[in-house]
Design a protein around this nucleic acid. Structure first.
Lengths: 225, 225
DNA sequence: TAACCTGTTCAGCACCGGTTCAGGGCATGT
DNA sequence: ACATGCCCTGAACCGGTGCTGAACAGGTTA
Protein backbone atom coordinates (compact mmCIF):
# COMPACT_ATOMS: atom_id res chain seq x y z
CA UNK A 1 0.00 0.00 0.00
CA UNK A 2 1.31 3.42 -0.89
CA UNK A 3 0.35 6.46 1.11
CA UNK A 4 0.86 10.16 0.58
CA UNK A 5 1.05 12.56 3.49
CA UNK A 6 0.54 16.26 2.73
CA UNK A 7 1.32 18.23 5.87
CA UNK A 8 3.32 21.41 6.24
CA UNK A 9 4.25 21.11 9.90
CA UNK A 10 7.64 19.39 9.62
CA UNK A 11 7.40 17.69 13.00
CA UNK A 12 3.95 16.33 12.41
CA UNK A 13 4.68 15.24 8.85
CA UNK A 14 7.78 13.39 9.97
CA UNK A 15 5.87 11.74 12.76
CA UNK A 16 3.06 10.76 10.43
CA UNK A 17 5.40 9.44 7.80
CA UNK A 18 7.14 7.34 10.35
CA UNK A 19 3.92 6.03 11.86
CA UNK A 20 2.61 5.01 8.47
CA UNK A 21 5.87 3.37 7.52
CA UNK A 22 5.79 1.42 10.75
CA UNK A 23 2.30 0.36 9.81
CA UNK A 24 3.62 -1.03 6.55
CA UNK A 25 2.85 1.70 4.06
CA UNK A 26 5.27 3.01 1.47
CA UNK A 27 5.07 6.71 2.26
CA UNK A 28 5.79 9.89 0.39
CA UNK A 29 5.60 13.21 2.19
CA UNK A 30 4.82 16.60 0.69
CA UNK A 31 5.29 19.78 2.67
CA UNK A 32 3.08 22.12 0.67
CA UNK A 33 0.00 22.03 -1.49
CA UNK A 34 1.72 22.24 -4.83
CA UNK A 35 4.08 19.37 -4.18
CA UNK A 36 1.26 17.36 -2.70
CA UNK A 37 -1.01 17.96 -5.66
CA UNK A 38 1.71 17.04 -8.11
CA UNK A 39 2.55 13.82 -6.31
CA UNK A 40 -1.07 12.80 -6.03
CA UNK A 41 -1.50 13.47 -9.71
CA UNK A 42 1.51 11.46 -10.80
CA UNK A 43 1.81 8.58 -8.40
CA UNK A 44 -0.74 5.83 -7.77
CA UNK A 45 -1.44 6.08 -4.07
CA UNK A 46 -3.78 3.83 -2.20
CA UNK A 47 -4.64 6.43 0.40
CA UNK A 48 -3.85 10.08 1.12
CA UNK A 49 -3.64 12.04 4.35
CA UNK A 50 -4.23 15.69 3.55
CA UNK A 51 -3.92 18.64 5.84
CA UNK A 52 -6.25 21.46 4.87
CA UNK A 53 -4.13 24.40 5.98
CA UNK A 54 -1.25 24.34 3.53
CA UNK A 55 1.17 26.83 2.02
CA UNK A 56 1.17 27.51 -1.75
CA UNK A 57 -2.09 25.73 -2.42
CA UNK A 58 -4.98 25.19 -0.07
CA UNK A 59 -5.85 21.61 0.84
CA UNK A 60 -9.40 21.88 -0.39
CA UNK A 61 -8.18 23.17 -3.73
CA UNK A 62 -5.72 20.31 -3.99
CA UNK A 63 -8.48 17.83 -3.34
CA UNK A 64 -10.86 19.50 -5.76
CA UNK A 65 -8.31 19.35 -8.54
CA UNK A 66 -7.56 15.71 -7.89
CA UNK A 67 -11.21 14.83 -8.08
CA UNK A 68 -11.67 16.91 -11.22
CA UNK A 69 -8.87 14.93 -12.76
CA UNK A 70 -10.65 11.74 -11.85
CA UNK A 71 -8.38 10.63 -9.04
CA UNK A 72 -10.35 8.21 -6.95
CA UNK A 73 -8.05 7.29 -4.11
CA UNK A 74 -9.48 7.66 -0.62
CA UNK A 75 -8.49 10.90 1.09
CA UNK A 76 -8.52 11.55 4.80
CA UNK A 77 -8.37 15.23 5.66
CA UNK A 78 -6.84 16.74 8.78
CA UNK A 79 -8.40 19.91 10.13
CA UNK A 80 -7.69 22.14 13.08
CA UNK A 81 -10.24 21.80 15.84
CA UNK A 82 -13.45 23.81 15.41
CA UNK A 83 -12.99 24.56 11.76
CA UNK A 84 -16.34 23.28 10.65
CA UNK A 85 -16.44 25.28 7.48
CA UNK A 86 -13.21 23.74 6.28
CA UNK A 87 -14.44 20.30 7.12
CA UNK A 88 -17.61 20.74 5.14
CA UNK A 89 -15.70 22.20 2.22
CA UNK A 90 -13.40 19.21 2.37
CA UNK A 91 -16.26 16.77 2.17
CA UNK A 92 -17.82 18.71 -0.65
CA UNK A 93 -14.54 18.47 -2.48
CA UNK A 94 -14.59 14.71 -2.18
CA UNK A 95 -12.91 13.69 1.08
CA UNK A 96 -13.71 10.26 2.46
CA UNK A 97 -13.03 10.85 6.13
CA UNK A 98 -11.67 13.47 8.47
CA UNK A 99 -9.79 13.79 11.70
CA UNK A 100 -9.37 16.88 13.84
CA UNK A 101 -5.99 17.79 15.18
CA UNK A 102 -4.71 16.81 17.61
CA UNK A 103 -5.40 13.13 17.28
CA UNK A 104 -4.05 9.77 18.29
CA UNK A 105 -1.98 8.09 15.62
CA UNK A 106 -3.76 4.84 16.42
CA UNK A 107 -7.03 6.39 15.47
CA UNK A 108 -5.56 7.70 12.25
CA UNK A 109 -4.20 4.28 11.39
CA UNK A 110 -7.52 2.64 12.14
CA UNK A 111 -9.34 5.05 9.88
CA UNK A 112 -6.81 4.59 7.11
CA UNK A 113 -7.22 0.84 7.35
CA UNK A 114 -10.95 1.28 7.09
CA UNK A 115 -10.54 3.51 4.05
CA UNK A 116 -8.23 1.18 2.15
CA UNK A 117 -10.46 -1.74 2.94
CA UNK A 118 -13.53 0.10 1.78
CA UNK A 119 -11.79 1.27 -1.37
CA UNK A 120 -11.05 -2.34 -2.25
CA UNK A 121 -14.56 -3.38 -1.45
CA UNK A 122 -13.76 -5.34 1.68
CA UNK A 123 -15.51 -4.95 4.99
CA UNK A 124 -13.50 -6.86 7.54
CA UNK A 125 -9.91 -6.18 8.51
CA UNK A 126 -8.84 -9.56 7.26
CA UNK A 127 -8.89 -10.61 3.65
CA UNK A 128 -9.62 -14.24 2.91
CA UNK A 129 -8.51 -16.25 -0.08
CA UNK A 130 -9.42 -19.85 0.45
CA UNK A 131 -7.90 -20.94 3.72
CA UNK A 132 -5.36 -18.17 3.46
CA UNK A 133 -6.23 -15.20 5.60
CA UNK A 134 -4.42 -11.91 5.75
CA UNK A 135 -4.79 -9.68 8.76
CA UNK A 136 -4.27 -6.21 7.40
CA UNK A 137 -4.37 -4.75 10.86
CA UNK A 138 -1.77 -6.95 12.48
CA UNK A 139 0.23 -7.55 9.33
CA UNK A 140 -0.06 -11.27 9.92
CA UNK A 141 -0.80 -14.13 7.61
CA UNK A 142 -2.49 -17.40 8.45
CA UNK A 143 -2.97 -20.60 6.54
CA UNK A 144 -5.83 -22.63 7.88
CA UNK A 145 -5.43 -20.74 11.14
CA UNK A 146 -1.74 -21.45 11.47
CA UNK A 147 0.41 -18.33 11.51
CA UNK A 148 2.95 -17.83 8.74
CA UNK A 149 5.91 -15.58 9.31
CA UNK A 150 6.39 -13.05 6.52
CA UNK A 151 8.66 -10.05 6.30
CA UNK A 152 7.28 -6.58 5.82
CA UNK A 153 7.88 -6.36 2.07
CA UNK A 154 6.54 -9.83 1.60
CA UNK A 155 3.46 -8.76 3.45
CA UNK A 156 2.98 -5.61 1.42
CA UNK A 157 3.16 -7.60 -1.74
CA UNK A 158 0.84 -10.34 -0.59
CA UNK A 159 -1.53 -7.77 0.75
CA UNK A 160 -1.67 -5.91 -2.54
CA UNK A 161 -2.23 -9.11 -4.43
CA UNK A 162 -4.98 -10.05 -2.01
CA UNK A 163 -6.70 -6.70 -2.33
CA UNK A 164 -6.98 -7.42 -6.05
CA UNK A 165 -7.25 -11.17 -6.02
CA UNK A 166 -8.24 -12.91 -9.24
CA UNK A 167 -6.81 -10.01 -11.20
CA UNK A 168 -3.51 -10.20 -12.97
CA UNK A 169 -1.10 -7.74 -11.41
CA UNK A 170 1.79 -6.72 -13.61
CA UNK A 171 5.25 -6.57 -12.22
CA UNK A 172 5.36 -2.83 -12.77
CA UNK A 173 2.08 -2.33 -10.94
CA UNK A 174 3.42 -4.27 -7.99
CA UNK A 175 6.57 -2.19 -7.95
CA UNK A 176 4.63 1.05 -8.12
CA UNK A 177 2.46 0.11 -5.18
CA UNK A 178 5.04 -1.50 -2.97
CA UNK A 179 7.91 0.89 -3.31
CA UNK A 180 8.05 4.60 -3.08
CA UNK A 181 8.98 6.78 -5.97
CA UNK A 182 12.34 5.73 -7.31
CA UNK A 183 13.08 2.10 -7.84
CA UNK A 184 15.38 0.40 -10.26
CA UNK A 185 13.06 -0.79 -12.97
CA UNK A 186 14.96 -3.78 -14.25
CA UNK A 187 15.68 -5.87 -11.25
CA UNK A 188 14.29 -9.23 -10.37
CA UNK A 189 13.46 -8.36 -6.79
CA UNK A 190 9.80 -8.98 -7.43
CA UNK A 191 10.47 -12.47 -8.67
CA UNK A 192 12.58 -13.21 -5.64
CA UNK A 193 9.78 -12.09 -3.36
CA UNK A 194 7.24 -14.11 -5.24
CA UNK A 195 9.50 -17.10 -4.86
CA UNK A 196 9.87 -16.59 -1.14
CA UNK A 197 6.18 -16.06 -0.68
CA UNK A 198 5.38 -19.19 -2.61
CA UNK A 199 7.77 -21.11 -0.40
CA UNK A 200 5.84 -19.93 2.61
CA UNK A 201 2.24 -20.10 1.52
CA UNK A 202 2.42 -22.79 -1.14
CA UNK A 203 3.37 -22.78 -4.78
CA UNK A 204 -0.13 -22.98 -6.18
CA UNK A 205 -1.41 -19.84 -4.51
CA UNK A 206 0.36 -17.35 -6.73
CA UNK A 207 -0.10 -18.01 -10.41
CA UNK A 208 2.32 -16.50 -12.85
CA UNK A 209 0.81 -15.34 -16.09
CA UNK A 210 3.72 -15.33 -18.45
CA UNK A 211 4.37 -11.93 -19.97
CA UNK A 212 1.71 -10.25 -17.87
CA UNK A 213 2.26 -10.70 -14.17
CA UNK A 214 0.98 -12.55 -11.15
CA UNK A 215 -2.37 -13.44 -9.71
CA UNK A 216 -3.42 -14.61 -6.27
CA UNK A 217 -5.87 -17.48 -6.44
CA UNK A 218 -7.55 -19.97 -4.18
CA UNK A 219 -6.18 -23.32 -5.34
CA UNK A 220 -9.11 -25.24 -3.85
CA UNK A 221 -11.74 -23.24 -5.66
CA UNK A 222 -10.84 -24.29 -9.15
CA UNK A 223 -11.54 -28.01 -9.70
CA UNK A 224 -14.97 -27.15 -11.09
CA UNK A 225 -16.91 -23.95 -11.11
CA UNK B 1 -5.27 -5.44 -29.68
CA UNK B 2 -2.87 -3.04 -31.31
CA UNK B 3 -2.21 0.36 -29.83
CA UNK B 4 -0.38 3.41 -31.11
CA UNK B 5 1.26 5.83 -28.74
CA UNK B 6 2.13 9.28 -30.09
CA UNK B 7 4.16 11.10 -27.48
CA UNK B 8 7.29 13.16 -27.93
CA UNK B 9 8.65 12.94 -24.42
CA UNK B 10 10.95 9.93 -24.70
CA UNK B 11 10.64 8.93 -21.06
CA UNK B 12 6.89 9.08 -21.05
CA UNK B 13 6.52 7.32 -24.38
CA UNK B 14 8.76 4.52 -23.24
CA UNK B 15 6.87 4.21 -20.01
CA UNK B 16 3.55 4.18 -21.83
CA UNK B 17 4.74 1.65 -24.33
CA UNK B 18 5.87 -0.60 -21.58
CA UNK B 19 2.68 -0.26 -19.58
CA UNK B 20 0.53 -1.08 -22.60
CA UNK B 21 2.68 -4.04 -23.47
CA UNK B 22 2.33 -5.26 -19.91
CA UNK B 23 -1.38 -4.99 -20.38
CA UNK B 24 -1.21 -7.18 -23.46
CA UNK B 25 -1.33 -4.69 -26.31
CA UNK B 26 0.91 -4.83 -29.35
CA UNK B 27 2.35 -1.33 -29.27
CA UNK B 28 3.93 1.04 -31.77
CA UNK B 29 5.38 4.33 -30.64
CA UNK B 30 5.74 7.53 -32.65
CA UNK B 31 7.78 10.44 -31.34
CA UNK B 32 6.37 13.25 -33.46
CA UNK B 33 3.17 14.23 -35.22
CA UNK B 34 4.24 13.28 -38.72
CA UNK B 35 5.33 9.79 -37.83
CA UNK B 36 2.25 9.36 -35.71
CA UNK B 37 -0.05 10.51 -38.47
CA UNK B 38 1.62 8.23 -40.98
CA UNK B 39 1.38 5.19 -38.75
CA UNK B 40 -2.22 5.84 -37.88
CA UNK B 41 -2.99 6.21 -41.56
CA UNK B 42 -1.30 3.01 -42.61
CA UNK B 43 -1.71 0.59 -39.74
CA UNK B 44 -4.99 -0.70 -38.33
CA UNK B 45 -4.90 0.22 -34.66
CA UNK B 46 -7.55 -0.64 -32.15
CA UNK B 47 -6.86 2.36 -29.99
CA UNK B 48 -4.57 5.38 -30.05
CA UNK B 49 -3.02 7.44 -27.27
CA UNK B 50 -2.25 10.87 -28.66
CA UNK B 51 -0.39 13.67 -26.99
CA UNK B 52 -1.55 17.06 -28.19
CA UNK B 53 1.70 18.96 -27.89
CA UNK B 54 3.84 17.40 -30.60
CA UNK B 55 6.75 18.47 -32.79
CA UNK B 56 6.36 18.63 -36.60
CA UNK B 57 2.59 18.31 -36.58
CA UNK B 58 0.19 19.33 -33.85
CA UNK B 59 -1.84 16.57 -32.22
CA UNK B 60 -5.15 18.17 -33.06
CA UNK B 61 -4.14 18.39 -36.72
CA UNK B 62 -3.10 14.76 -36.72
CA UNK B 63 -6.45 13.77 -35.30
CA UNK B 64 -8.38 15.96 -37.73
CA UNK B 65 -6.63 14.43 -40.70
CA UNK B 66 -7.24 10.91 -39.46
CA UNK B 67 -10.92 11.61 -39.07
CA UNK B 68 -11.06 13.28 -42.48
CA UNK B 69 -9.54 10.13 -43.93
CA UNK B 70 -12.23 8.12 -42.26
CA UNK B 71 -10.12 6.52 -39.57
CA UNK B 72 -12.53 5.50 -36.87
CA UNK B 73 -10.32 4.02 -34.20
CA UNK B 74 -10.90 5.38 -30.70
CA UNK B 75 -8.43 8.07 -29.72
CA UNK B 76 -7.54 9.11 -26.20
CA UNK B 77 -5.79 12.45 -26.04
CA UNK B 78 -3.27 13.55 -23.45
CA UNK B 79 -3.21 17.20 -22.51
CA UNK B 80 -1.16 19.23 -20.09
CA UNK B 81 -3.20 20.26 -17.11
CA UNK B 82 -5.15 23.49 -17.45
CA UNK B 83 -5.10 23.52 -21.24
CA UNK B 84 -8.80 23.70 -21.65
CA UNK B 85 -8.72 25.14 -25.13
CA UNK B 86 -6.66 22.24 -26.39
CA UNK B 87 -8.95 19.78 -24.72
CA UNK B 88 -12.00 21.27 -26.38
CA UNK B 89 -10.26 21.43 -29.74
CA UNK B 90 -9.32 17.79 -29.32
CA UNK B 91 -12.88 16.75 -28.72
CA UNK B 92 -14.06 18.80 -31.66
CA UNK B 93 -11.50 17.02 -33.80
CA UNK B 94 -12.97 13.70 -32.84
CA UNK B 95 -11.28 12.45 -29.69
CA UNK B 96 -13.14 9.85 -27.67
CA UNK B 97 -11.63 10.52 -24.27
CA UNK B 98 -8.96 12.58 -22.65
CA UNK B 99 -6.60 12.45 -19.74
CA UNK B 100 -4.63 15.30 -18.25
CA UNK B 101 -0.98 14.85 -17.57
CA UNK B 102 0.25 13.73 -15.22
CA UNK B 103 -1.92 10.66 -14.75
CA UNK B 104 -1.91 7.19 -13.29
CA UNK B 105 -1.10 4.47 -15.76
CA UNK B 106 -3.83 2.36 -14.24
CA UNK B 107 -6.38 4.99 -15.02
CA UNK B 108 -5.12 5.19 -18.57
CA UNK B 109 -5.40 1.43 -18.92
CA UNK B 110 -8.89 1.44 -17.51
CA UNK B 111 -9.99 4.10 -19.97
CA UNK B 112 -8.39 2.28 -22.87
CA UNK B 113 -10.20 -0.89 -21.89
CA UNK B 114 -13.42 1.06 -21.78
CA UNK B 115 -12.72 2.54 -25.22
CA UNK B 116 -11.92 -0.74 -26.93
CA UNK B 117 -14.91 -2.38 -25.37
CA UNK B 118 -17.18 0.45 -26.39
CA UNK B 119 -15.77 0.46 -29.90
CA UNK B 120 -16.69 -3.19 -30.23
CA UNK B 121 -20.12 -2.55 -28.81
CA UNK B 122 -19.61 -4.38 -25.55
CA UNK B 123 -20.30 -3.01 -22.12
CA UNK B 124 -18.89 -5.49 -19.64
CA UNK B 125 -15.30 -6.57 -19.38
CA UNK B 126 -16.16 -10.15 -20.23
CA UNK B 127 -17.28 -11.18 -23.68
CA UNK B 128 -19.58 -14.15 -24.04
CA UNK B 129 -19.98 -16.45 -26.97
CA UNK B 130 -22.24 -19.30 -26.08
CA UNK B 131 -20.83 -20.94 -22.98
CA UNK B 132 -17.43 -19.53 -23.82
CA UNK B 133 -16.57 -16.46 -21.79
CA UNK B 134 -13.53 -14.28 -22.13
CA UNK B 135 -12.40 -12.07 -19.28
CA UNK B 136 -10.59 -9.26 -21.06
CA UNK B 137 -9.49 -7.67 -17.83
CA UNK B 138 -8.13 -10.78 -16.16
CA UNK B 139 -6.89 -12.37 -19.39
CA UNK B 140 -8.78 -15.57 -18.66
CA UNK B 141 -10.98 -17.88 -20.63
CA UNK B 142 -13.76 -20.10 -19.35
CA UNK B 143 -15.86 -22.77 -20.96
CA UNK B 144 -19.04 -23.35 -19.07
CA UNK B 145 -17.37 -21.77 -16.06
CA UNK B 146 -14.33 -24.02 -16.16
CA UNK B 147 -11.06 -22.17 -16.67
CA UNK B 148 -9.08 -22.86 -19.82
CA UNK B 149 -5.38 -22.18 -19.85
CA UNK B 150 -4.29 -20.10 -22.83
CA UNK B 151 -1.02 -18.39 -23.58
CA UNK B 152 -0.79 -14.68 -24.04
CA UNK B 153 -0.77 -14.74 -27.86
CA UNK B 154 -3.53 -17.27 -27.94
CA UNK B 155 -5.50 -14.97 -25.72
CA UNK B 156 -4.90 -11.92 -27.88
CA UNK B 157 -6.11 -13.78 -30.88
CA UNK B 158 -9.16 -15.26 -29.23
CA UNK B 159 -9.94 -11.91 -27.74
CA UNK B 160 -9.80 -10.19 -31.10
CA UNK B 161 -12.01 -12.82 -32.65
CA UNK B 162 -14.44 -12.47 -29.78
CA UNK B 163 -14.58 -8.68 -30.11
CA UNK B 164 -15.75 -9.24 -33.67
CA UNK B 165 -17.58 -12.50 -33.34
CA UNK B 166 -19.72 -13.71 -36.23
CA UNK B 167 -17.57 -11.68 -38.58
CA UNK B 168 -15.00 -13.30 -40.78
CA UNK B 169 -11.53 -12.16 -39.80
CA UNK B 170 -8.86 -12.46 -42.43
CA UNK B 171 -5.49 -13.84 -41.59
CA UNK B 172 -3.82 -10.54 -42.36
CA UNK B 173 -6.29 -8.67 -40.19
CA UNK B 174 -5.46 -10.97 -37.33
CA UNK B 175 -1.75 -10.50 -37.86
CA UNK B 176 -2.12 -6.77 -38.08
CA UNK B 177 -4.04 -6.55 -34.85
CA UNK B 178 -2.09 -9.04 -32.81
CA UNK B 179 1.44 -8.12 -33.77
CA UNK B 180 3.16 -4.79 -33.96
CA UNK B 181 4.60 -3.41 -37.16
CA UNK B 182 7.31 -5.79 -38.18
CA UNK B 183 6.14 -9.31 -38.66
CA UNK B 184 7.06 -11.81 -41.31
CA UNK B 185 4.03 -11.74 -43.55
CA UNK B 186 4.24 -15.18 -45.03
CA UNK B 187 4.32 -17.52 -42.12
CA UNK B 188 1.76 -19.96 -40.92
CA UNK B 189 1.93 -18.88 -37.31
CA UNK B 190 -1.71 -17.90 -37.35
CA UNK B 191 -2.78 -21.32 -38.48
CA UNK B 192 -0.74 -22.92 -35.75
CA UNK B 193 -2.41 -20.70 -33.18
CA UNK B 194 -5.85 -21.43 -34.54
CA UNK B 195 -5.02 -25.09 -34.26
CA UNK B 196 -3.89 -24.79 -30.68
CA UNK B 197 -6.90 -22.73 -29.74
CA UNK B 198 -9.26 -25.22 -31.32
CA UNK B 199 -7.58 -27.97 -29.35
CA UNK B 200 -8.31 -26.06 -26.17
CA UNK B 201 -11.79 -24.66 -26.70
CA UNK B 202 -13.20 -27.16 -29.15
CA UNK B 203 -12.91 -27.56 -32.89
CA UNK B 204 -16.35 -26.25 -33.73
CA UNK B 205 -15.87 -22.86 -32.12
CA UNK B 206 -13.60 -21.40 -34.76
CA UNK B 207 -14.89 -21.81 -38.29
CA UNK B 208 -12.50 -21.48 -41.17
CA UNK B 209 -13.83 -19.74 -44.21
CA UNK B 210 -11.64 -20.94 -46.97
CA UNK B 211 -9.79 -18.19 -48.77
CA UNK B 212 -11.06 -15.54 -46.40
CA UNK B 213 -10.19 -16.26 -42.82
CA UNK B 214 -11.72 -17.37 -39.54
CA UNK B 215 -14.84 -16.70 -37.58
CA UNK B 216 -15.69 -17.27 -33.95
CA UNK B 217 -19.13 -18.80 -33.53
CA UNK B 218 -21.32 -20.33 -30.89
CA UNK B 219 -21.74 -23.94 -32.03
CA UNK B 220 -24.95 -24.37 -30.03
CA UNK B 221 -26.64 -21.33 -31.45
CA UNK B 222 -26.74 -22.55 -35.00
CA UNK B 223 -28.74 -25.79 -35.24
CA UNK B 224 -28.85 -25.10 -38.94
CA UNK B 225 -27.25 -22.26 -40.80
C1' DT C 1 31.47 -6.30 18.18
C1' DA C 2 29.23 -10.24 16.63
C1' DA C 3 25.07 -12.41 15.23
C1' DC C 4 21.04 -11.81 12.83
C1' DC C 5 17.34 -10.38 9.85
C1' DT C 6 15.74 -8.26 5.62
C1' DG C 7 16.14 -6.61 1.15
C1' DT C 8 18.81 -6.61 -3.10
C1' DT C 9 21.87 -8.33 -6.66
C1' DC C 10 23.76 -11.79 -9.58
C1' DA C 11 24.47 -15.82 -12.38
C1' DG C 12 22.99 -20.11 -13.97
C1' DC C 13 19.44 -22.87 -15.50
C1' DA C 14 15.08 -25.02 -16.77
C1' DC C 15 11.27 -24.57 -19.27
C1' DC C 16 7.67 -22.34 -21.70
C1' DG C 17 5.88 -20.19 -25.59
C1' DG C 18 6.46 -18.44 -30.30
C1' DT C 19 8.06 -19.60 -34.66
C1' DT C 20 9.40 -22.46 -38.40
C1' DC C 21 9.25 -26.40 -41.38
C1' DA C 22 7.71 -30.39 -43.78
C1' DG C 23 4.37 -33.49 -44.89
C1' DG C 24 -0.23 -34.83 -45.65
C1' DG C 25 -5.38 -33.96 -46.10
C1' DC C 26 -9.21 -31.89 -47.84
C1' DA C 27 -12.02 -28.56 -50.19
C1' DT C 28 -12.90 -26.27 -54.44
C1' DG C 29 -13.21 -25.54 -59.43
C1' DT C 30 -12.78 -27.47 -63.87
C1' DA D 1 -12.41 -37.55 -60.89
C1' DC D 2 -8.38 -34.86 -60.91
C1' DA D 3 -5.31 -31.44 -59.88
C1' DT D 4 -4.35 -27.34 -57.56
C1' DG D 5 -3.53 -25.00 -53.73
C1' DC D 6 -5.11 -23.79 -49.20
C1' DC D 7 -5.20 -25.41 -44.64
C1' DC D 8 -4.05 -28.45 -40.74
C1' DT D 9 -0.89 -30.75 -37.72
C1' DG D 10 3.03 -32.76 -35.34
C1' DA D 11 7.58 -32.10 -34.26
C1' DA D 12 11.56 -29.52 -33.51
C1' DC D 13 14.10 -25.34 -32.78
C1' DC D 14 15.29 -21.33 -30.27
C1' DG D 15 15.20 -17.32 -27.49
C1' DG D 16 13.47 -15.25 -23.66
C1' DT D 17 11.24 -15.30 -19.24
C1' DG D 18 10.93 -16.46 -14.87
C1' DC D 19 12.81 -19.38 -10.95
C1' DT D 20 16.29 -20.47 -7.65
C1' DG D 21 20.30 -20.66 -4.57
C1' DA D 22 23.74 -18.07 -2.89
C1' DA D 23 26.22 -14.15 -1.80
C1' DC D 24 26.28 -9.38 -0.41
C1' DA D 25 24.91 -5.03 2.04
C1' DG D 26 22.63 -2.26 5.45
C1' DG D 27 20.41 -1.93 9.60
C1' DT D 28 19.02 -3.75 14.05
C1' DT D 29 19.58 -6.46 18.19
C1' DA D 30 21.97 -8.79 21.79
Amino acid sequence: MRALVVEDDPDLSRQLGRALEDAGYAVDVALDGEDGHFLGDTEPYDVVVLDLGLPKMDGVTVLERWRQDGKGFPVLILTARDRWSEKVAGFDAGADDYLTKPFHTEELLARLRALTRRAAGHVTSTIECGDLSIDTRGARVFIDGAPVKVTSHEFRMLSYLAHHQDRVISRTELVEHIYDQDFDRDSNTIEVFVGRLRKKIGNDRIETVRGLGYRLVDPEARPVS
